[in-house]
Amino acid sequence: MSGLDAQFWAAQGQNLLMGAIAIVVFITVIMLIMYGADLVKGRGRDKLQLVVLISPVLILLGIGLVYPALDTFWISFNSITDAPDPDTGIYTTTMQFIGLENYRFAFTDPSTVRTVLNTFVWMILVPILSTGIGLGYAVFIDRAKGEKVLKSLVFMPMAISLVGASVIWGNIMYDYNQVGQQTGMLNALKVFFGGEPYNFLADDPWNTFWLIVILVWIQVGFAMVILSAAIKGVPIELNEAASLDGASAWQRFWSITIPSIRSTIVVVLTTITIMALKVYDIVRTVTQGRDDTDVVANRMYVLSFVEGREALGAALAVILFVFVIPVVIYNVRSLNKVKENH
Protein backbone atom coordinates (compact mmCIF):
# COMPACT_ATOMS: atom_id res chain seq x y z
CA MET A 1 0.00 0.00 0.00
CA SER A 2 2.84 2.39 0.82
CA GLY A 3 4.17 2.07 -2.74
CA LEU A 4 0.98 3.46 -4.27
CA ASP A 5 1.12 7.22 -4.75
CA ALA A 6 -1.66 9.80 -4.74
CA GLN A 7 -1.87 9.76 -8.55
CA PHE A 8 -2.76 6.06 -8.50
CA TRP A 9 -5.57 6.55 -5.98
CA ALA A 10 -6.83 9.60 -7.87
CA ALA A 11 -7.03 7.54 -11.07
CA GLN A 12 -8.89 4.73 -9.26
CA GLY A 13 -11.30 7.20 -7.73
CA GLN A 14 -11.98 8.69 -11.15
CA ASN A 15 -12.64 5.23 -12.62
CA LEU A 16 -15.08 4.40 -9.83
CA LEU A 17 -16.85 7.74 -10.30
CA MET A 18 -17.22 7.19 -14.06
CA GLY A 19 -18.53 3.68 -13.45
CA ALA A 20 -21.09 4.94 -10.94
CA ILE A 21 -22.21 7.68 -13.36
CA ALA A 22 -22.59 5.16 -16.18
CA ILE A 23 -24.76 2.91 -14.00
CA VAL A 24 -26.96 5.80 -12.89
CA VAL A 25 -27.38 7.02 -16.48
CA PHE A 26 -28.28 3.51 -17.68
CA ILE A 27 -30.88 3.03 -14.94
CA THR A 28 -32.32 6.50 -15.57
CA VAL A 29 -32.68 5.88 -19.31
CA ILE A 30 -34.39 2.52 -18.74
CA MET A 31 -36.79 4.04 -16.21
CA LEU A 32 -37.68 6.90 -18.57
CA ILE A 33 -38.32 4.48 -21.43
CA MET A 34 -40.51 2.25 -19.27
CA TYR A 35 -42.36 5.28 -17.89
CA GLY A 36 -43.00 6.52 -21.43
CA ALA A 37 -44.27 3.11 -22.48
CA ASP A 38 -46.61 3.03 -19.50
CA LEU A 39 -48.19 6.32 -20.61
CA VAL A 40 -49.24 4.82 -23.94
CA LYS A 41 -52.94 4.06 -24.11
CA GLY A 42 -54.90 1.88 -26.47
CA ARG A 43 -54.50 -1.49 -28.11
CA GLY A 44 -50.78 -1.16 -28.82
CA ARG A 45 -49.81 -0.63 -25.19
CA ASP A 46 -48.99 -4.29 -24.40
CA LYS A 47 -46.94 -4.71 -27.55
CA LEU A 48 -45.01 -1.51 -26.92
CA GLN A 49 -44.25 -2.51 -23.33
CA LEU A 50 -43.05 -5.91 -24.53
CA VAL A 51 -40.72 -4.26 -27.05
CA VAL A 52 -39.39 -1.89 -24.39
CA LEU A 53 -38.65 -4.74 -21.98
CA ILE A 54 -37.04 -7.00 -24.56
CA SER A 55 -35.05 -4.40 -26.49
CA PRO A 56 -32.21 -3.93 -23.94
CA VAL A 57 -31.68 -7.69 -23.78
CA LEU A 58 -31.68 -8.00 -27.57
CA ILE A 59 -29.25 -5.10 -27.91
CA LEU A 60 -26.85 -6.60 -25.37
CA LEU A 61 -27.10 -10.02 -27.05
CA GLY A 62 -26.41 -8.43 -30.40
CA ILE A 63 -23.35 -6.58 -29.12
CA GLY A 64 -21.95 -9.36 -26.94
CA LEU A 65 -22.95 -12.49 -28.87
CA VAL A 66 -24.34 -12.06 -32.39
CA TYR A 67 -21.79 -9.54 -33.69
CA PRO A 68 -18.73 -11.41 -32.32
CA ALA A 69 -20.09 -14.67 -33.75
CA LEU A 70 -20.59 -13.16 -37.21
CA ASP A 71 -17.20 -11.45 -37.05
CA THR A 72 -15.52 -14.74 -36.11
CA PHE A 73 -17.31 -16.49 -38.97
CA TRP A 74 -16.06 -13.86 -41.44
CA ILE A 75 -12.49 -13.93 -40.11
CA SER A 76 -12.38 -17.71 -40.62
CA PHE A 77 -12.55 -17.14 -44.40
CA ASN A 78 -9.64 -14.72 -44.42
CA SER A 79 -5.91 -14.59 -43.90
CA ILE A 80 -4.59 -12.01 -41.44
CA THR A 81 -1.02 -10.81 -41.81
CA ASP A 82 1.07 -8.14 -40.09
CA ALA A 83 3.51 -6.51 -42.50
CA PRO A 84 5.51 -3.25 -42.44
CA ASP A 85 4.32 -0.40 -44.60
CA PRO A 86 6.86 0.09 -47.46
CA ASP A 87 6.88 3.87 -46.95
CA THR A 88 6.65 4.36 -43.19
CA GLY A 89 7.90 1.00 -41.94
CA ILE A 90 4.99 0.83 -39.48
CA TYR A 91 3.48 -2.62 -39.12
CA THR A 92 -0.13 -2.78 -40.30
CA THR A 93 -2.69 -5.58 -40.21
CA THR A 94 -4.13 -6.69 -43.55
CA MET A 95 -6.96 -9.15 -44.18
CA GLN A 96 -7.29 -11.14 -47.40
CA PHE A 97 -10.18 -13.40 -48.37
CA ILE A 98 -8.96 -16.99 -48.94
CA GLY A 99 -12.23 -18.94 -48.88
CA LEU A 100 -12.13 -22.37 -47.24
CA GLU A 101 -8.35 -22.53 -46.93
CA ASN A 102 -8.41 -22.35 -43.13
CA TYR A 103 -10.94 -25.17 -42.95
CA ARG A 104 -8.88 -27.24 -45.38
CA PHE A 105 -5.91 -26.79 -43.08
CA ALA A 106 -8.01 -27.75 -40.04
CA PHE A 107 -9.02 -31.06 -41.61
CA THR A 108 -5.69 -31.93 -43.23
CA ASP A 109 -3.09 -30.85 -40.67
CA PRO A 110 -2.30 -34.03 -38.66
CA SER A 111 -2.12 -32.31 -35.26
CA THR A 112 -5.37 -30.42 -35.83
CA VAL A 113 -7.14 -33.55 -37.08
CA ARG A 114 -6.01 -35.36 -33.94
CA THR A 115 -7.38 -32.45 -31.91
CA VAL A 116 -10.79 -32.78 -33.58
CA LEU A 117 -10.82 -36.55 -32.99
CA ASN A 118 -9.93 -36.05 -29.33
CA THR A 119 -12.84 -33.64 -28.99
CA PHE A 120 -15.18 -36.29 -30.44
CA VAL A 121 -13.89 -38.78 -27.87
CA TRP A 122 -14.62 -36.30 -25.08
CA MET A 123 -18.07 -35.64 -26.55
CA ILE A 124 -18.95 -39.36 -26.56
CA LEU A 125 -17.36 -40.70 -23.38
CA VAL A 126 -17.99 -37.89 -20.90
CA PRO A 127 -21.83 -37.76 -21.27
CA ILE A 128 -22.21 -41.55 -21.37
CA LEU A 129 -19.99 -42.21 -18.34
CA SER A 130 -21.26 -39.26 -16.28
CA THR A 131 -24.94 -39.94 -16.94
CA GLY A 132 -24.60 -43.71 -16.58
CA ILE A 133 -22.71 -43.55 -13.29
CA GLY A 134 -24.94 -40.76 -11.97
CA LEU A 135 -28.11 -42.68 -12.88
CA GLY A 136 -26.84 -45.88 -11.30
CA TYR A 137 -25.84 -44.06 -8.12
CA ALA A 138 -29.20 -42.28 -7.94
CA VAL A 139 -31.11 -45.56 -8.30
CA PHE A 140 -29.10 -47.52 -5.75
CA ILE A 141 -29.13 -44.91 -2.99
CA ASP A 142 -32.70 -43.72 -3.59
CA ARG A 143 -34.45 -43.71 -0.18
CA ALA A 144 -31.47 -45.53 1.35
CA LYS A 145 -30.19 -44.86 4.85
CA GLY A 146 -27.83 -41.89 4.83
CA GLU A 147 -29.02 -40.81 1.38
CA LYS A 148 -28.31 -37.12 1.97
CA VAL A 149 -24.74 -37.76 3.11
CA LEU A 150 -24.02 -40.13 0.22
CA LYS A 151 -25.39 -37.64 -2.31
CA SER A 152 -23.39 -34.79 -0.78
CA LEU A 153 -20.15 -36.75 -1.14
CA VAL A 154 -20.76 -37.34 -4.85
CA PHE A 155 -22.01 -33.82 -5.50
CA MET A 156 -19.07 -32.18 -3.68
CA PRO A 157 -16.72 -32.11 -6.73
CA MET A 158 -19.23 -29.80 -8.46
CA ALA A 159 -18.15 -27.10 -5.99
CA ILE A 160 -14.56 -27.31 -7.26
CA SER A 161 -13.49 -25.32 -10.30
CA LEU A 162 -12.20 -27.19 -13.33
CA VAL A 163 -8.75 -25.74 -12.73
CA GLY A 164 -8.82 -26.84 -9.10
CA ALA A 165 -9.93 -30.34 -10.05
CA SER A 166 -7.19 -30.48 -12.69
CA VAL A 167 -4.55 -29.55 -10.12
CA ILE A 168 -5.87 -32.21 -7.73
CA TRP A 169 -5.78 -34.99 -10.31
CA GLY A 170 -2.69 -33.84 -12.20
CA ASN A 171 -0.41 -33.12 -9.24
CA ILE A 172 -1.81 -35.43 -6.57
CA MET A 173 -3.37 -38.42 -8.33
CA TYR A 174 -1.48 -38.78 -11.64
CA ASP A 175 1.93 -37.39 -10.68
CA TYR A 176 4.86 -39.52 -11.94
CA ASN A 177 8.55 -39.38 -11.08
CA GLN A 178 11.13 -41.10 -13.27
CA VAL A 179 13.49 -41.50 -10.33
CA GLY A 180 13.08 -41.40 -6.59
CA GLN A 181 9.97 -41.80 -4.49
CA GLN A 182 6.57 -41.59 -6.16
CA THR A 183 4.54 -38.65 -4.83
CA GLY A 184 1.45 -39.25 -6.95
CA MET A 185 -1.20 -41.17 -5.02
CA LEU A 186 -1.98 -43.73 -7.73
CA ASN A 187 1.67 -44.47 -8.49
CA ALA A 188 2.50 -44.60 -4.77
CA LEU A 189 -0.20 -47.26 -4.33
CA LYS A 190 1.09 -49.22 -7.34
CA VAL A 191 4.63 -49.22 -5.97
CA PHE A 192 3.37 -50.14 -2.49
CA PHE A 193 1.67 -53.24 -3.88
CA GLY A 194 4.74 -54.21 -5.93
CA GLY A 195 3.83 -52.68 -9.27
CA GLU A 196 5.77 -50.36 -11.56
CA PRO A 197 4.98 -46.61 -11.72
CA TYR A 198 3.04 -45.50 -14.76
CA ASN A 199 3.10 -42.14 -16.55
CA PHE A 200 -0.64 -41.55 -16.87
CA LEU A 201 -0.31 -38.27 -18.79
CA ALA A 202 2.26 -39.35 -21.41
CA ASP A 203 0.93 -42.72 -22.56
CA ASP A 204 -1.02 -41.99 -25.75
CA PRO A 205 -3.96 -42.58 -26.29
CA TRP A 206 -4.79 -43.49 -22.69
CA ASN A 207 -3.70 -40.07 -21.45
CA THR A 208 -6.82 -38.57 -23.04
CA PHE A 209 -8.96 -41.05 -21.11
CA TRP A 210 -7.27 -40.11 -17.82
CA LEU A 211 -8.09 -36.46 -18.53
CA ILE A 212 -11.69 -37.42 -19.29
CA VAL A 213 -11.90 -39.04 -15.84
CA ILE A 214 -11.45 -35.59 -14.27
CA LEU A 215 -14.52 -34.13 -15.99
CA VAL A 216 -16.54 -37.28 -15.34
CA TRP A 217 -15.64 -37.04 -11.65
CA ILE A 218 -17.11 -33.53 -11.59
CA GLN A 219 -20.19 -34.12 -13.75
CA VAL A 220 -21.37 -37.33 -12.05
CA GLY A 221 -22.64 -35.25 -9.13
CA PHE A 222 -24.66 -33.02 -11.46
CA ALA A 223 -26.20 -36.01 -13.25
CA MET A 224 -26.93 -37.80 -9.98
CA VAL A 225 -28.78 -34.86 -8.39
CA ILE A 226 -30.94 -34.08 -11.44
CA LEU A 227 -31.79 -37.73 -12.17
CA SER A 228 -32.44 -38.51 -8.51
CA ALA A 229 -35.01 -35.70 -8.36
CA ALA A 230 -36.64 -37.05 -11.54
CA ILE A 231 -36.77 -40.60 -10.14
CA LYS A 232 -38.53 -39.37 -7.00
CA GLY A 233 -41.18 -37.88 -9.28
CA VAL A 234 -42.08 -41.28 -10.75
CA PRO A 235 -45.44 -42.37 -9.21
CA ILE A 236 -44.91 -45.11 -6.63
CA GLU A 237 -48.21 -46.70 -7.68
CA LEU A 238 -46.75 -47.68 -11.06
CA ASN A 239 -43.90 -49.64 -9.47
CA GLU A 240 -46.23 -51.22 -6.92
CA ALA A 241 -48.66 -52.34 -9.64
CA ALA A 242 -45.81 -53.76 -11.74
CA SER A 243 -44.42 -55.57 -8.69
CA LEU A 244 -47.82 -57.17 -8.02
CA ASP A 245 -47.86 -58.31 -11.66
CA GLY A 246 -44.58 -60.15 -11.07
CA ALA A 247 -42.16 -57.69 -12.72
CA SER A 248 -38.60 -57.82 -11.41
CA ALA A 249 -36.68 -54.79 -10.21
CA TRP A 250 -34.76 -54.71 -13.50
CA GLN A 251 -37.97 -54.87 -15.55
CA ARG A 252 -39.54 -52.09 -13.48
CA PHE A 253 -36.44 -49.98 -14.02
CA TRP A 254 -36.42 -50.34 -17.82
CA SER A 255 -40.20 -50.28 -18.37
CA ILE A 256 -41.26 -47.64 -15.85
CA THR A 257 -38.38 -45.56 -14.48
CA ILE A 258 -36.44 -44.96 -17.70
CA PRO A 259 -39.49 -43.94 -19.84
CA SER A 260 -40.72 -41.69 -17.03
CA ILE A 261 -37.44 -39.76 -16.75
CA ARG A 262 -36.49 -39.87 -20.46
CA SER A 263 -36.78 -36.09 -20.91
CA THR A 264 -34.55 -35.49 -17.88
CA ILE A 265 -31.94 -37.93 -19.20
CA VAL A 266 -31.91 -36.07 -22.52
CA VAL A 267 -31.38 -32.73 -20.77
CA VAL A 268 -28.54 -34.14 -18.65
CA LEU A 269 -26.87 -35.78 -21.65
CA THR A 270 -27.15 -32.60 -23.70
CA THR A 271 -25.82 -30.35 -20.95
CA ILE A 272 -22.82 -32.58 -20.26
CA THR A 273 -22.14 -33.03 -23.99
CA ILE A 274 -21.92 -29.27 -24.52
CA MET A 275 -19.68 -29.05 -21.45
CA ALA A 276 -17.39 -31.73 -22.91
CA LEU A 277 -17.26 -30.04 -26.32
CA LYS A 278 -16.02 -26.74 -24.92
CA VAL A 279 -13.65 -28.23 -22.31
CA TYR A 280 -10.51 -26.14 -22.06
CA ASP A 281 -9.45 -25.76 -18.44
CA ILE A 282 -8.54 -29.40 -17.81
CA VAL A 283 -6.33 -29.84 -20.86
CA ARG A 284 -4.72 -26.41 -20.45
CA THR A 285 -3.92 -26.98 -16.78
CA VAL A 286 -2.73 -30.59 -16.85
CA THR A 287 -0.95 -31.16 -20.19
CA GLN A 288 -1.21 -27.90 -22.21
CA GLY A 289 -2.19 -30.17 -25.11
CA ARG A 290 1.10 -32.12 -25.12
CA ASP A 291 1.38 -35.83 -26.01
CA ASP A 292 -1.63 -35.74 -28.36
CA THR A 293 -4.12 -34.65 -25.68
CA ASP A 294 -5.16 -31.38 -27.31
CA VAL A 295 -8.83 -30.45 -27.83
CA VAL A 296 -10.47 -27.90 -30.11
CA ALA A 297 -10.99 -25.22 -27.42
CA ASN A 298 -7.36 -25.30 -26.27
CA ARG A 299 -6.06 -25.46 -29.85
CA MET A 300 -8.24 -22.49 -30.75
CA TYR A 301 -6.77 -20.50 -27.86
CA VAL A 302 -3.18 -21.39 -28.77
CA LEU A 303 -3.64 -20.49 -32.43
CA SER A 304 -5.40 -17.20 -31.71
CA PHE A 305 -3.55 -15.80 -28.70
CA VAL A 306 -0.22 -17.62 -28.51
CA GLU A 307 0.81 -18.16 -32.14
CA GLY A 308 -1.05 -15.11 -33.48
CA ARG A 309 -2.93 -17.11 -36.17
CA GLU A 310 -6.34 -15.59 -35.50
CA ALA A 311 -7.95 -16.80 -38.73
CA LEU A 312 -7.15 -20.45 -38.02
CA GLY A 313 -8.38 -20.00 -34.46
CA ALA A 314 -11.62 -18.52 -35.81
CA ALA A 315 -12.05 -21.52 -38.11
CA LEU A 316 -11.75 -23.89 -35.15
CA ALA A 317 -14.25 -21.76 -33.23
CA VAL A 318 -16.74 -22.17 -36.09
CA ILE A 319 -16.08 -25.93 -36.19
CA LEU A 320 -16.75 -26.13 -32.45
CA PHE A 321 -19.99 -24.21 -32.93
CA VAL A 322 -21.04 -26.62 -35.68
CA PHE A 323 -20.41 -29.54 -33.31
CA VAL A 324 -22.80 -28.03 -30.76
CA ILE A 325 -25.69 -27.35 -33.18
CA PRO A 326 -26.81 -31.02 -33.69
CA VAL A 327 -26.75 -31.61 -29.94
CA VAL A 328 -29.00 -28.61 -29.29
CA ILE A 329 -31.39 -29.56 -32.13
CA TYR A 330 -31.67 -33.11 -30.79
CA ASN A 331 -32.39 -31.78 -27.31
CA VAL A 332 -35.15 -29.47 -28.55
CA ARG A 333 -36.77 -32.18 -30.71
CA SER A 334 -36.66 -34.72 -27.89
CA LEU A 335 -38.27 -32.32 -25.45
CA ASN A 336 -40.98 -31.45 -28.00
CA LYS A 337 -41.76 -35.16 -28.47
CA VAL A 338 -42.07 -35.61 -24.72
CA LYS A 339 -44.50 -32.67 -24.53
CA GLU A 340 -46.58 -34.11 -27.39
CA ASN A 341 -46.76 -37.50 -25.67
CA HIS A 342 -47.94 -35.88 -22.46
Rank of each mutant, 00 (worst) to 15 (best):
Ala242Ser: 10
Gln181Gly: 10
Val266Trp: 04
Trp217Ser: 02
Ser243Trp: 06
Val283Tyr: 04
Asp109Glu: 07
Ala223Asp: 10
Tyr174His: 05
Thr208Asn: 12
Ala11His: 14
Thr271Ile: 09
Phe107Cys: 11
Lys145Met: 03
Arg45Met: 01
His342Ser: 15
Arg262Tyr: 13
Pro197Asn: 12
Gly64Ile: 07
Asn331Glu: 01
Ser76Leu: 12
Ala223His: 04
Val57Ser: 01
Val324His: 07
Val66Asn: 07
Gln96Ser: 13
Ser243Lys: 04
Asp38Glu: 11
Trp74Ser: 14
Ala11Gln: 15
Met34Thr: 10
Gly308Ile: 14
Ala37Met: 14
Asn187Lys: 11
Met300Cys: 08
Val163Lys: 07
Met95Leu: 11
Lys339His: 05
Phe200Lys: 06
Ile261Tyr: 09
Asn118Asp: 10
Val225Tyr: 06
Tyr67Asp: 03
Gly44Asn: 10
Leu53Cys: 10
Asp109Tyr: 03
Gly89Asn: 00
Ile226Asp: 02
Leu129Tyr: 02
Ser260Ala: 09
Asp175Leu: 15
Phe192Met: 15
Gly184Arg: 00
Asp85Thr: 09
Val220Met: 09
Gly19Lys: 03
Gly36Met: 12
Val139Gly: 00
Asn102Ser: 10
Ser228Arg: 11
Leu65Gln: 15
Thr28Ala: 13
Thr88Gln: 05
Leu61Glu: 00
Thr119Asp: 00
Ile54Tyr: 04
Gly42Phe: 01
Phe192Thr: 04
Ser152Gly: 13
Gly36Asn: 05
Val126Trp: 00
Lys232Asn: 10
Leu211Met: 08
Gly62Ile: 03
Gln178Cys: 06
Thr115Cys: 12
Lys337Phe: 02
Asp142Gly: 12
Asn331Gln: 08
Glu310Phe: 14
Arg45Lys: 15
Leu316Phe: 12
Met95Ile: 09
Pro56Ala: 00
Arg333Met: 14
Thr108Asp: 11
Gly164Tyr: 08
Thr131Glu: 00
